[in-house]
Design a protein around this nucleic acid. Structure first.
Length: 652
DNA sequence: CTAGGGTTAG
């Protein structure tokens, strides 16, 4: 049987008899009384003899008292404005009591405002408190549910909003699009895909399947739950797509490692078919993509788009530009943006510091750090990540240690795993392996796989086999071993010439069917990002590319290049069988030579792994023989090759 | 007779 109230919209109130009894509404009997719009005027108190309860409220706080004058006519308005403005806890408590003990309890507007005040802002802000009030008033409008569900969705226990939502449906109260959007938000908060799917179904049942805002929220849900295809499906089925919808789609691509697709969406959304103007958020997202893909030209396009559309003054965009330019290896451009800013926040300074650091300007990064403090900007944890990585990239051991100590004692920042990572890198590079190991074991937080992996890398450099074995045990314990770890271990054994162990590790890898991450490079030419994996044969111009590579190899051999395979098994082909002959770096370079005239710009390549010795030698010679600069960004840092030299002294 | 929705810098 249909619930009795379903015929009179959702506007019903509880039987007056239940009003004062503070019944928990789950057990209350709900009787529709009337449409609220037809209420004669029950809440215009103006009582001839005001009952003591309606006497103006005197709010006391220690020795001061705040009188709130209630002219009898706008009693309700006064209460509402009091609810909105009151900033002291006890006053709100008094109002709470006042509402419960008077006819105010029957007023949806009053209860709504009170619910908002105690759940979303103000001194009592606490979903449990609002839930109590919610149950005390014992009648429920969608708006009350919405407020409550929203409060939960923002709280530490977003699951509760889903419970309340289910409760609400069980009572036959129709959800409106807002209700659903709050619930979706909660599902995103705790990545509850199944619940989200349930809500998605209900949205259809409720007939809200064309609400583009709701659909956008659902896309975000699927995207954050790694359901790229489902997100795309929702996107495809959207009747109207505004800029935000496109933005969510782009962020979905980024989240799910479809970075090149994300880039292409910029032009698709602007095309004739869709005519959707990118906004500042679009730019923010795309700058992130450019930084990842090393797509400088595209980044510059976004930069001019920002300028042309009047977003130039936005702090977040400038910060993002700084980061993009420096991660594309153009510190000078990053610096230009930085200098052009009217105001600079910690974020700007930190971005600049990290930018300098990652490009090998360690000293300059430290100078920037000091300059920043002279400008009265307090560093935060991100700033120190930049400073510490500056030290580690430039081998400034003592400075790094002292910054680490100052960060803790002077700036009261508890080191995060990131900071430990930098320190381990720093110490490991300097050969202080045991100290680095001690540092990791002394950490309060549980060390994660990255930290151990950093140490393993250092063991590999210094050929410290016993420590390396201990580290791999930790990684195994974390169940976080990746192919790269085994490769490092393999290299460690082979550099120590322990060949039996090498065989053993190989067997182990085969047994556990460990997949190596395919080495993958991107190179941007004429604004298009090309991608190559090891021994790639998928490119349409593969024949020309391999011919060019052969030619380059020939030229370099004349100059004394020798392929170095034995000592370095850094990257293997993607089937994990053996040594790859054409690392993606070389393919990208060959392609660059193929499509650009000689002596033009530098070739800029980004790689997802660390560069190997062989490729490093190859690129050094290439830069001299072909007289072309190569800027290679590997997983950790930049290598600027020029005239047979590299900005990093040794290859690592 | 209220107000409440989706993307977002280092």
């Amino acid at each position: 049987m249909a619930p009795v109230w379903s015929s009179c919209s959702n506007r019903f109130v509880l039987a007056a008899t239940k009003l004062q009894s503070h019944t928990c509404f789950t057990t209350a009997i709900v009787i529709p009384l009337y449409h609220y719009s037809t209420i004669p005027q029950p809440y215009q108190p103006n009582p001839p003899n005001p009952s003591p309860k309606l006497v103006p409220l005197q709010l006391h706080k220690q020795n001061q008292s705040i009188p709130i004058s209630f002219s009898s006519l706008n009693y309700k308005e006064s209460i509402i404005s009091a609810i909105k403005s009151i900033s002291h806890k006890t006053h709100l408590l008094q109002i709470h009591a006042r509402i419960l003990t008077t006819t105010l309890i029957q007023d949806p507007a009053v209860s709504h405002h009170f619910l908002c005040r105690v759940s979303l802002s103000g001194p009592l802000q606490n979903p449990d408190y609002s839930r109590r009030f919610f149950e005390q008033i014992s009648y429920s409008f969608v708006s009350h549910y919405n407020t409550m569900i929203r409060a939960y969705s923002l709280s530490d226990s977003p699951q509760k909003s889903l419970f309340l939502y289910r409760d609400m449906r069980r009572r036959g109260i129709a959800a409106n699009p807002l209700t659903s959007s709050f619930v979706v938000k909660s599902c995103i908060r705790f990545l509850y895909l199944l619940g989200g799917v349930q809500v998605h179904c209900n949205i259809f049942k409720d007939g809200h399947q064309s609400d583009s805002l709701l659909l956008t929220a659902l896309m975000d849900l699927y995207s954050q739950c790694q359901k790229y295809d489902d997100a795309c499906k929702v996107f495809d089925e959207m009747p109207m797509r505004d800029t935000v919808a496109w933005n969510v789609m782009i962020s979905c691509c980024i989240r799910n490692n479809r970075t090149r697709d994300a880039l292409s969406l910029f032009d698709v959304m602007r095309s004739e078919n869709y005519k959707c103007e990118p906004d500042d958020v679009t730019c923010l997202l795309l700058l992130q993509v450019c930084a990842r893909l090393n797509a400088l030209e595209f980044g510059e396009r976004i930069h001019s788009y920002i300028m042309d559309h009047g977003y130039g003054g936005a702090m977040n965009l400038s910060n993002s530009l700084i980061s993009m330019y420096s991660r594309c290896g153009c510190v000078d451009k990053a610096y230009e943006v930085f200098m052009g800013m009217k105001n600079r926040s910690v974020v700007s300074w930190s971005a600049m510091i990290s930018g300098l650091a990652v490009n090998g300007y360690g000293r300059e990064a430290i100078e920037a750090f000091e300059e920043m403090q002279r400008n009265g900007i307090q560093p935060d944890d991100h700033t120190f990540t930049g400073v510490l990585s500056a030290c580690s990239h430039s081998g400034l051991l003592d400075e790094g240690v002292s910054f680490f100590d100052r960060m803790i004692s002077e700036f009261r920042i508890t080191p995060a795993i990131h900071h430990y990572g930098c320190m381990v890198d720093l110490m490991g590079r300097a050969g202080l392996l045991d100290k680095a190991y001690q540092l990791i074991t002394s950490m309060e937080a549980k060390p994660d796989s990255t930290v151990w992996r950093t140490l393993l890398g250092a063991c590999r450099i210094h050929g410290h086999v016993t420590l390396g074995e201990r580290v791999i045990e930790h990684l195994i314990e974390l169940r976080a071993q990746e192919a790269g770890d085994y490769v490092l271990l393999l290299n460690l054994y082979s550099s120590a010439e322990q060949w039996e162990k090498v065989v053993e590790v190989r067997k182990l890898m085969k047994q556990n069917s460990i997949q190596t991450t395919p080495g993958c490079c991107t190179i941007e030419l004429n604004g298009v990002v090309h991608e190559f994996v090891v021994d790639d044969i998928s490119h349409s111009r593969r024949v020309e590319i391999y011919n060019t590579l052969d030619e380059i190899n020939k030229q370099l051999r004349i100059a004394g290049y020798v392929v170095e395979l034995s000592s370095e098994l850094h990257k293997m082909d993607n089937r994990g069988k053996g040594y790859a002959l054409s690392h993606s770096e070389k393919l990208a370079i060959a392609f660059g030579v193929l499509v650009t005239p000689p002596g033009t710009t530098a070739l800029r390549v980004a790689s997802n792994l660390r560069i190997c010795v062989d490729c490093h030698n190859f690129l050094k010679l290439f830069s001299a023989v072909y007289n072309r600069d190569v800027i290679l960004r590997d997983r950790k840092r930049f290598h600027h090759f020029r005239q047979g030299h590299c900005s990093c002294s040794d290859y690592w």
